[in-house]
Design a binder for these strands. Structure first.
Lengths: 215, 215
DNA sequence: AAGGTACATGGTAACTATTATTATGTCAAT
DNA sequence: ATTGACATAATAATAGTTACCATGTACCTT
């Protein structure tokens, strides 16, 4: 009645690609690599097998910070360090001497089965980038917001681009099909994205980032 | 040009409820609690404010294992222990004496900004449950699968419920509108959920869990 | 060897957790 | 009294992951 594990071709490729990575890849990073060898493989197959293989103890599923799960081919006990900027994960070896244990009286009634140690900081690559771009760090780090424009936002931004000087929201409302209330709502969003600046109270102008976003 | 933080009623309630919790709640656990005081509050408001409050330094956003973010009202330096079964999170105090530091030569070029220590195991509550139910542990731990039936699954299960003795997949196919291939596919899924058992090869019967799932 | 089941796959729909969008509301400062 | 900064509720959109199911393949019995 043992659960039987069949070593299929897909599984072999997934395992061997994971073995070649020293980067603790996420499921879809691995999917991209595997797809080069097996172009017809499904993303679901990669997910399914990573799960099955880790349950079988052939690989290890990492519990690390960040939204995506990561997988590790190295089964030996070791800890990790990750980059808060690009989310890359590297190995750290604490050489066993510093392994922590938790006195029973402090374990709050838990049956403790282990301990995870994780350092975090900036990886070598991201340190260089950070030094170059002192400004605009927050914008850079944002994953989805900041890029892309809705139809209304684009309309307002295009109207602003045509103005030579800074103008008020009513001027823009007149230049577009939108109502004044809608305009101010869009301007708020555009300012948040850095596409619009307000040189004076009630006056707005497009920024260079805003012009870039229009093209 | 300072960003101004307005202390609204919603914000007050979110903060005070978080203060009362000693459980490091997730956003929607907190939402459920806040909703009792402010029934019209939006889940998005809770998410937004937890984000804003943690950026302002009034609360702390935790990076812990598990898929959901958790929030902590206690700003002091402390570590955590979490339950691998129910994902509850408790505080652990290592008394500072064991704080780790990473020698520069071992940091792989990272600019290290900190370290997280996290114990894991079974919480007191889950230890008791585990002792009672030696079998079926895996089924218990599963989050979404195991509950719920698709239309086809329900049809097969109802047909099985009408049989007095264990019967083969062809008998079931005859009793339903489904083809034999479809039936065996559904039986596989139902077995995985524990709703169907196979007392003998090629013979299936509904389990008590299966009967419960039908009602 | 044949038959039949257990296990696997690909494609896609559905799900969970989170974030963005937007109309509207509220407050403070001109 | 306006105007704009900040907030909210409701909902759509998104990312990551998992479930569903038709179909394919490997492994046991007989």
């Amino acid at each position: 009645m043992e659960k039987q594990l069949r070593m299929t071709h897909q599984r072999e490729v997934i395992l061997s690609e994971l073995g070649k990575c020293h980067t603790h890849p996420t499921a879809d990073e691995l999917y991209e690599r595997v797809k080069k060898k097996l172009p017809r493989i499904s993303l679901a197959t990669v997910y399914r097998n990573l799960e099955i293989l880790s349950e079988a103890g052939l690989i290890r599923k990492l519990e690390v910070s960040g939204r995506q799960k990561r997988f590790d081919w190295d089964l030996r006990q070791h800890d990790h360090i990750y980059c808060v900027h690009c989310h890359r994960v590297d190995n750290i070896d604490l050489k066993g001497k510093k392994r922590l244990s938790l006195p029973a009286r402090e374990s709050k009634g838990y049956e403790v089965s282990g301990c995870r140690i994780e350092f975090f900081g900036l990886c070598p690559g991201c340190r260089k980038i950070q030094q170059k771009t002192r400004k605009g760090e927050e914008k850079m780090g944002c994953k989805t917001c900041g890029t892309g424009l809705s139809d209304k936002q684009r309309e307002v931004l295009e109207a602003l681009a045509k103005c030579k000087d800074a103008c008020g929201s009513k001027d823009i409302a007149a230049a577009t099909s939108l109502e004044p209330k809608q305009v101010s709502c869009q301007i708020t969003a555009l300012k948040k994205k850095g596409y619009v600046a307000s040189p004076a109270r009630c006056k707005y102008e497009i920024t260079s980032e805003g012009k870039a976003a229009l093209s």
